[in-house]
Design a protein around this nucleic acid. Sequence first.
DNA 1: CGGTCATTTGAAATCGTTCAAAAGGAGTGG
DNA 2: CCACTCCTTTTGAACGATTTCAAATGACCG
Lengths: 242, 242
Amino acid sequence: MVVYLIRKLEQFTKLSNEEKRALENAAAQKVRRLGPREDIIHEGDRPRHLNLMLEGWACRYKVLEDGRRQVVAFLVPGDMCDLRMSILRRMDHSIGCLSHALVAEISADTVVELSDRYPALRRALWWNSLVEEAKAREWIVNLGRRNAAERMAHLFCEMYVRLRAIGLTIDRAFELPVTQELLSDAVGLSAVHVNRTLMELREANLISLKGKTLTILDPDGLEALALFSADYLHLDRSGEAG
Amino acid sequence: MVVYLIRKLEQFTKLSNEEKRALENAAAQKVRRLGPREDIIHEGDRPRHLNLMLEGWACRYKVLEDGRRQVVAFLVPGDMCDLRMSILRRMDHSIGCLSHALVAEISADTVVELSDRYPALRRALWWNSLVEEAKAREWIVNLGRRNAAERMAHLFCEMYVRLRAIGLTIDRAFELPVTQELLSDAVGLSAVHVNRTLMELREANLISLKGKTLTILDPDGLEALALFSADYLHLDRSGEAG
DNA sequence: CGGTCATTTGAAATCGTTCAAAAGGAGTGG
DNA sequence: CCACTCCTTTTGAACGATTTCAAATGACCG
């Protein structure tokens, strides 16, 4: 299960067997099973431990007083909900499951212990949180400066690259357990317009989306449309060389 | 000069005199003076040291291949450009000055030394980077789910709270050394529409903007329009109590 | 098999953009 | 200190993208 986290961190630097085993132990202590629409943690809550996605999708989201909702990140296996969040008094956003999910609860003490004991791991976790920040910045660009088709294309490119890095793609396809409504909350459009934009992408033979399976038919075309560059995901093993 | 950083960090936790002195020393080693439109660091560069804003404004921004630009954050005195960035190989965005600015260069070693020696400082720097992330998330919400007037109002509320926290407001006014063009790149609108929206906010007696001085005439009204809540800035001294 | 939720489609309304031009302001050199 | 220039702000009008409302169709779950 924790294999996805390991695969992700190894995009930054190779981990020793001991480090991997330590992660496995940590993630095996307590595992929660959650259903779609269940919140892993809610805005205003005080985070007590680290939640690690083992299986399934979730999303970070914020809701305005009048009900408008914005998804600010998608979480897939290997993603962590609230690393180092213990520093902040309260969650400023919620995290909800989009599908059935398995979530490991890792105590704050265990996290500290792991990162004290394994410097490579500590650096890998740092890297992970810097990449989170970089993703948020790219989402700002996406919402601020790309039009509907470009936004959706960009989101699909990002998810494809992220999932491929952890081995959750099959050829050029992956599971996207998300309604168009939710997609619209992620790209800042109306659900109706998301629907039309999906049509457009299909008619351009860039993607196919049947049920919950997204297939990228034309990776180059999709990236070109999206003005996508994977640089911001920093999947360059930068923890290894000088 | 480093007083702004200290004031900001003390929103999280009180610092000892020794810690403050250590920060002052670190920031006094090397200071760069930059003019408006000069880049502090550029996308693709390899960050070599920590850049700390002592005076003036800057912004993080990304530019798409076709020239569209999006500002993803404003930096004011006390803000750091690239704490811990040494983990990432290359900058995935640029940071440019908006006004005359003083920037302290602090070596990576000094940063490590400071945070090894002063745990409270280390925690305060963590807090700072978590708040950066929280701000990015709120900007995503801003661009995704608020309309033009709400977006601008929200930006003004955020800047007002941030500047007030470090003592850079006078009554309800502060310097906003930014053209409408740049504002438009921050809120994801066209410059023309920013101009019209500013008019709107002025006619509603919410703000006055003369030259580069922004005055908030009706803080409650502006926050209500913006659906603003300062929670995400975490200015709650959370480093002090349980 | 019915019911509920998700997707699709159409048409009208709205918000924001674009293009173009005028007016205002700040800095520079003579 | 004026004239000149460049940059920023302001305004108008037409256009275009996206939203909203409403309804029909399709898919999945129990």
